[in-house]
């Protein structure tokens, strides 16, 4: 494992010039990034940006055309040693429906050389009451928590979480954020792909925004917001978008990024548009500005 000299900053994943071309599309076009231990890295992008292909290549589920991937500074391919140190939670998770929660955890534990204690894992993910429940009888949220728990079952050093909080209520989402941050504090490198911009903003140390197979920008959420040049965002109904030149329309709303907030508000009020919101820019605004699309 390479080390940058600081405790907890060992590089657990390094991707260089990764390419994956299909006949009609460049799914991944020469991208590079790295993930350090104790770091959460988010990969964001609209549908078809190449996020999933990138992650699946790194997970060893797809072949790459070109480029180099280094796991833990030592391994160039996904061998069993790498698999023992990597946890994966897919966006769509499936289980053996007739096994109980504890049987499922025991099954996946048995497949790895090392593992977390079953009881501890069940407590962390608040599945105590469902230990003897068959998977088919779990709710969507409970299944999602179990899926994330299975990503950590082998006490991995590198974890891929693809939409880990989909299907969870706001309370459960925040609980899961806390769990993810706790694992991060234990030195695990986490790669997160999410559609929730607030999630990426809250959890990520670094964000990579992808579009058309390329990384179009990278940095910490705050760096991205600061470097975007956005001062204020005014959000108002799409039917009034003709009032301004540089508005981004996404769904029923138009988004105006401006430094001259007062003039913009005056213009809206003069046009009898009163249902608008003025707020500080977020990662979502950066995303919107860069890709021109609101994440679905």
């Amino acid at each position: 494992m390479s080390n940058n000299g600081e405790t907890g900053s060992a590089t657990v994943l390094e991707v260089n010039n990764l390419k994956k071309y299909y006949p009609s599309v460049k799914a991944v076009d020469d991208i590079s990034f790295e993930v350090n231990a104790g770091e959460i890295v988010s990969i964001l992008g609209p549908n078809g940006a190449g996020k999933t292909t990138t992650i699946e290549i790194i997970e060893g589920l797809r072949t790459k055309d070109e480029g180099e991937i280094s796991y833990f500074g030592r391994f160039k391919e996904v061998n069993n040693e790498v698999k023992n140190r990597v946890g994966v939670c897919f966006q769509e998770n499936s289980f053996f429906e007739d096994l109980t929660v504890s049987e499922t955890i025991r099954l996946y534990k048995s497949l790895y050389e090392k593992s977390l204690d079953t009881k501890e894992l069940i407590e962390i993910f608040e599945l105590e009451e469902k230990v003897k429940t068959r998977i088919r009888h779990l709710s969507g949220g409970q299944k999602q928590r179990l899926a994330v728990a299975l990503a950590f079952v082998n006490d991995p050093d590198l974890v891929f979480l693809d939409e880990p909080t989909v299907g969870l209520d706001p309370h459960a989402r925040r609980n899961l954020w806390e769990i993810i941050l706790k694992f991060k504090s234990q030195g695990k490198g986490i790669v997160l792909t999410t559609h929730y911009m607030d999630e990426a903003q809250q959890l990520s140390d670094k964000v990579y925004i992808m579009d058309h197979g390329n990384i179009i920008t990278a940095g910490s959420p705050q760096e991205l917001i600061n470097s975007s040049g956005l001062e204020s965002v005014i959000e108002f109904p799409e039917e009034s978008s003709a009032l301004f030149e540089d508005v981004i329309i996404a769904g029923e709303y138009a988004y105006l990024h401006t430094r001259d907030t007062v003039s913009a508000i005056r213009k809206l009020l003069e046009s009898n548009v009163t249902n608008f919101v003025v707020r500080q820019p977020t990662l979502e605004d950066v995303f919107l500005k860069l890709t021109g699309k609101k994440i679905d």
Partner: peptide, 13 residues
């Protein structure tokens, strides 16, 4: 179809 094999394929087995 249920992608169970996909999950198992990320383990060392």
């Amino acid at each position: 179809r249920k992608k169970i094999l996909r999950k198992i394929s990320t383990t060392p087995i």
